[in-house]
């Protein structure tokens, strides 16, 4: 150890605490959750006994409610991610191509909403969308509608909330990737006979894909497990798995089933992350 070169020792000084932190705050709780998912529910405190049974997984996978909720989560998160990509890509492109002194301001505006608590921003959408909210009051005052529009407690509101909340996570990695693309490459494409649209699709777009993939994961993964948005803006047709998890844990107090759901969700989300890793490994 004392013979190790200074840089390898220095690396240890920085890397070991980081890994210790990750182990204590991520790996350990995850292992605990996985262990509880194999236990049995009881009426005690804590409300489970250690065991080694897969019956909780059988319950989760055998019940249409849970499977439906998983499917709805993936569907809603997937659609929201696609919408974020469609809105976020032109935004990121425009920011990357803006004059340098303006870029900082535009990025600042993208991040600005994050200065307010996430929860409060979702509550604010309730105030905007509910039957007696700003939109419906305004429409009724103007005489455009008789009855309030059903803007809340449905899939529309959940998608709106997710896209609104997670758009910055799509824009930022996309911007970082597009901004790094050498402007000379686009000029070279023009030089070689490609007008702007062709140069975009043949050069800028393929080189921005790593940013699009990173942004999509940053939106899709938290959106799949989202609990607050479907709880506050959703309705009976938007039973996302995060909400079911919460109900199992706090209302039914069935920790083993809740932990089985959480473990299954983590396994489900590990898929796209591993895919992204392989994609990156291939790219470099």
């Amino acid at each position: 150890m004392s013979e190790a070169p200074w840089h390898s020792r220095a690396r240890r000084i920085f890397v070991v605490p980081a890994f210790a932190w990750l182990a204590a705050t991520v790996a350990l709780p995850l292992a605990l959750v996985a262990a509880i998912s194999l236990g049995e529910a009881t009426q005690g405190a804590p409300p489970f006994d250690w065991s080694f049974t897969f019956s909780n997984y059988a319950i989760v996978l055998g019940d249409a409610l849970y499977v439906e909720a998983f499917a709805a989560s993936v569907r809603i998160a997937g659609t929201s991610t696609a919408i974020c990509l469609l809105i976020g890509y032109p935004m990121a492109l425009a920011i990357a191509r803006a004059r340098p002194e303006r870029r900082l301001w535009l990025l600042f505006l993208v991040v600005l909403p994050c200065w307010t608590s996430f929860l409060i921003r979702v509550y604010a959408w309730m105030g905007i969308l509910r039957p007696t909210g700003y939109i419906n009051s305004a429409l009724q005052a103007l005489g455009l509608v008789e009855e309030p529009l059903g803007l809340i407690a449905n899939a529309f509101a959940v998608h709106l909330g997710i896209v609104y909340a997670y758009l910055p996570f799509m824009v930022l990695p996309l911007y970082a990737t597009i901004e790094r693309i050498d402007a000379a490459l686009v000029e070279a494409a023009h030089d070689l006979g490609a007008p702007p649209a062709r140069a975009f699709w043949r050069v800028t777009f393929p080189l921005s894909l790593p940013g699009a993939v990173a942004g999509s994961l940053l939106v899709f993964i938290p959106a799949s497990g989202e609990f607050v948005i479907p709880d506050l803006l959703g309705g009976p047709d938007t039973q996302m798995i995060g909400r079911i998890l919460w109900l199992e844990f706090f209302q039914n107090r069935d920790w083993p089933v809740a932990c089985a759901i959480a473990t299954a969700l983590a396994a489900l989300l590990a898929g796209p992350i591993l895919l992204f890793d392989r994609y990156r490994a291939r790219g470099t």
Binding site: D182, A184, L185, E187, A188, D191, L192, V203
Partner: peptide, 10 residues
């Protein structure tokens, strides 16, 4: 056609 300074290969 141009040969760019840093080549600008795709």
């Amino acid at each position: 056609n141009t040969v760019f300074q840093s080549y600008a290969l795709f």
